[in-house]
């Protein structure tokens, strides 16, 4: 199997729970990379802390497993220093948007060519099922025994508003869509965000009585529709999937190249 050369097979079976969506994201990510035929030496994967962040350990590229919430800040250093590298940053929902929220919006604002994945399972898995900024209201969690009163971020709207130039959403059920979107996100010359709705059967599923992994995937299948579909108008509760923003704007490292030229030209 061709994707195996992108895996660090000695660490398999991986550490995630049975039915965890993060494994499916790993599956899709290595397939997306494989279809592009990218050299493993030109890819750097940077992650933070959490279940999702352990994904970097399984991929045979340059991997940087950093601090909770800070992956995009580390990645910015890698990318600006060596813009020829492809930098992919898989993050969890709490990692990316609670502790890492500031780095997230500023990386988007700069439009630096980094691919940010938000593996959104609406829960902190590693620490035992506490609610996250993407849990949303009326959700049960270890820190919300009477249900949450915190509304969730809309990752897509937030990313677009912050300046990301490629913004998409997909799910771990719609895997072909996910591979295609990941490929486009990686190829995009600018800051790209892919929100991947993922399942945590162990904590989120159990606390909210959503059934097993397959049941939760059915929920993602039935609860989402392609962007712009009529079904969404009839039922606003449905979540849209697809590409929400895709535009060309000045990319940060390319702009810095111009600064270097200007600085050299003006040198006394």
């Amino acid at each position: 199997m061709t994707i195996r050369k992108y895996l660090r097979e000695r660490f398999f079976p991986h550490m995630w729970c049975p039915g965890c969506g993060h494994g499916t994201v790993l599956n899709a990510l290595v397939r997306a990379i494989e279809t592009m035929g990218m050299s493993r030496n030109e890819i750097v994967m940077v992650s933070g802390i959490g279940c999702s962040s352990r994904i970097t350990g399984y991929v045979d590229v340059h991997t940087l497993h950093t601090l909770h919430g800070r992956a995009l800040a580390f990645a910015t250093g890698v990318k600006l220093s060596k813009p020829e590298l492809n930098v992919i940053v898989p993050m969890g929902d709490g990692d990316a948007l609670a502790i890492g929220g500031n780095h997230f919006i500023h990386a988007a604002r700069r439009n630096i060519a980094i691919t940010a994945l938000v593996m959104n399972n609406r829960i902190y898995g590693m620490t035992g099922g506490q609610y996250s900024p993407l849990s949303g209201c009326d959700v049960m969690a270890a820190t919300a025994p009477y249900s949450t009163i915190d509304p969730a971020f809309d990752v897509v709207a937030l990313s677009v508003a912050a300046g990301a130039t490629f913004v998409a959403r997909c799910t771990t059920y719609h895997v072909k869509e996910m591979i295609d979107i990941l490929r486009q996100a990686i190829l995009h010359e600018g800051f790209s965000v892919v929100e991947i709705l993922s399942q945590c059967p162990t904590y989120f599923g159990r606390a909210n009585k959503l059934g097993d992994a397959a049941e939760m995937l059915r929920g993602l299948k039935e609860g989402t529709v392609p962007v712009g579909s009529e079904a969404k108008q009839k039922n606003p509760a449905l979540i849209e999937r697809g590409i929400f923003a895709q535009q060309e704007k000045p990319e940060y490292c390319a702009e810095y190249e111009k600064i270097m030229q200007r600085a050299r030209a003006g040198r006394e």
Binding site: L67, R70, F74, V78, S81, N102, M260
Partner: peptide, 30 residues
Amino acid sequence: PRRGGKFIQMEDEIASMCAIIGASLTGRKV
């Protein structure tokens, strides 16, 4: 930038410290 080096003003000091670590791993003095 005059000598091909990179400068970035980050969003805070946390990010600054993280960014120089990332850059150091690409082989730069930071």
